[in-house]
């Protein structure tokens, strides 16, 4: 009890791996280990980035945003399946 009392106001190190929740992870072609949520997150991030860049550089040339969306969707499916 005494030893526990000494640490009571020490916060948890949230960056410490020992405190991270256990989730099924796997290694795919991505450089880091990921679970399905990470891969979904990466896909969404890529989709948004692509859309914004498309608006800026490619849409003025006359190509519709839907082309970008289709590519992003295909990429997302690939990442979630194989990442």
């Amino acid at each position: 009890m005494a030893s526990k009392m000494e640490n009571i106001d020490k916060p948890i190190d949230i960056l410490d791996d020992a405190n991270a929740p256990p989730i099924a992870e796997k290694s795919g072609f991505l450089p880091i280990e990921t679970n399905w949520f990470d891969r979904l997150f990466i896909s969404v991030v890529i989709w948004v980035a692509m859309s914004l860049l498309w608006f800026r550089f490619i849409e003025p040339l006359g190509l519709s945003i839907w082309i970008s969306n289709v590519i992003a969707l295909a990429l997302a499916a690939f990442i979630i399946a194989k990442g």
Binding site: S51, L52, L53, F55, R56, E59, I65
Partner: peptide, 10 residues
Amino acid sequence: GAGNFRQIVF
């Protein structure tokens, strides 16, 4: 739609 985002990038 995405009109606001079209505007932001410029």
